[in-house]
Amino acid sequence: MRVVIIGAGQAGAALAAKLRGLGHDGPLTLIGDEAAPPYQRPPLSKAYLMGEMEAERLWLRGPEFWAEQRVEMRLGAPVTGLDTGAQVVRVGGEAVPYDALALTTGAAPRRLPDAMGGGLDGVYTVRTLADVDAMRPEFVAGRRVVIVGGGYIGLEAAAVASKLGLEVTVLEAAPRILQRVASPETAAHIRALHARHGVTVLEGTALDRLRGGPRVTAAVLADGREIAADFVIVGVGVTPNTALAAMAGIDIDNGIATDTYGRTSAAGVWAAGDCASFPWQGGRLRLESVGNAIDQAEVVAANMLGAAVAYEARPWFWSDQYDCKLQIAGLNTGYDRVVTRAGEGGAVSFWYYRGAELLALDAMSDPRAYMVGKRLIEAGKSPDAALVADPATDLKALLR
């Protein structure tokens, strides 16, 4: 069986490695539009941007691994066409045939439109190695950076900039930072953390446009105020890369729509990772996380070989900002109350409940709370909220 994987990120690399690990011995081609081999993305906005990690340490596997596993790597090779009827992928002028195809095309950062100054020099997004390489020279102590978007990517970039001695302003159009993904309690904790490090966070503050030419010089706010900027980072989320699939007539629904096994609407075509949505609690879910990319890709690899294993998502995420490690387990969608548990040395965790059901938790520098909460959520157990809130409660006892 000839297998082709389009997308050489975390999901594509995991899928290729798993196929070989499960005994697939046929031709296996991994196609990526970036010139770099498969690499980790999370350190890009943290250790790599700080200059604490070399590029080679980002690689998921060394070149010798891919050679030993007989994975044909086609890097810096954007796919220009997909014919699911003829089972052919077009890379430039070449037609690459397949018997089974996996789409692990990931997601792309949302950009400001040119009408808002998105095309000015000195305006960056944070997604790829090339993105971060381009912006790293900007991080010089004393310079001024405006970050558009108070989500995790923007806040991580703000933390790095602050640690390197820059003057940092974060603009968030919503009433508070992290509004889409976290509780007011978590947002308040993170906001206070940034305030202690001198970052100015402006919530409920919309950007009208960026001013300058050819290079950005200021951010003009909706209320007419201007904030001087030596450069700007845009962190306003991502969109799944579905154009290739849509062009080939594959169903799209908040990403490339798959069934519970990872199959798309086209025969012989599968999808996994940031680009894919899957059935979840009567609806559809798309997760943007390393954990999901790996787990879903490995299930798809098994199913491509005939396993018929349903994918059961176990969401977990993390974010590093300054000396605070935020660890998240579960999905808080639909929560109606948040229970706060104080940890040791300033650690804290926030537990999301819907009625008596534990949905998720955010743990700030509290790995014990995170591990216990994650195990409880995965086991479908919901401890009494009063016990969780009581610092005298032995968390491990809740697992019994």
Rank of each mutant, 00 (worst) to 15 (best):
L155N: 05
W318A: 08
A11T: 07
V309T: 14
L15G: 03
P137Q: 14
A266K: 07
A8D: 03
T264A: 12
G26Q: 11
G154R: 04
E94F: 05
I190R: 00
A161C: 15
T84L: 10
A158R: 06
Y353H: 02
A276Q: 03
S277F: 10
W318I: 08
M1C: 03
G306M: 10
E52T: 09
L387N: 04
G237S: 11
K18V: 00
R400P: 00
D131H: 14
A301S: 07
N292Y: 04
G142Q: 09
E156A: 13
D83G: 09
A385S: 15
P240F: 08
E72F: 00
R41Y: 12
E68S: 12
G380D: 12
Q40V: 06
G268V: 08
E312D: 13
V168I: 11
R110E: 09
R57L: 14
V123W: 08
A102R: 00
A115L: 11
T393M: 15
A17T: 12
H197D: 11
W66K: 00
R314G: 02
A35P: 05
E94C: 05
E68W: 06
V123A: 08
P42Y: 09
A222S: 15
P391W: 08
I6F: 07
R284C: 03
P184D: 11
A271V: 07
V216I: 11
E156G: 13
G306C: 11
S319Q: 03
A386N: 07
D362I: 09
T128M: 05
A266C: 08
E172N: 05
L285I: 06
L207Y: 03
A271F: 08
G262D: 09
L44Q: 10
E226T: 15
A188E: 15
A369G: 13
R144G: 05
V372N: 02
L120G: 00
L361C: 12
A77G: 02
V123D: 06
V96Q: 01
L15R: 01
V126L: 15
V88A: 14
L326R: 04
E298K: 12
A134I: 09
D114W: 09
A141N: 07
A13I: 00
G76T: 06
A187D: 01
E288C: 13
S319V: 12
A107Y: 10
L28C: 05
L19H: 03
Y311D: 02
A276N: 02
G154A: 10
L210D: 06
A13N: 13
E344F: 03
L395A: 10
R286K: 13
L361T: 00
G122Y: 03
E357Q: 15
A159S: 15
G23S: 07
R191C: 04
H194M: 10
R41A: 12
R375I: 02
V4Q: 06
P38E: 02
R354F: 00
P63Q: 11
E64Y: 01
D394W: 05
D223L: 12
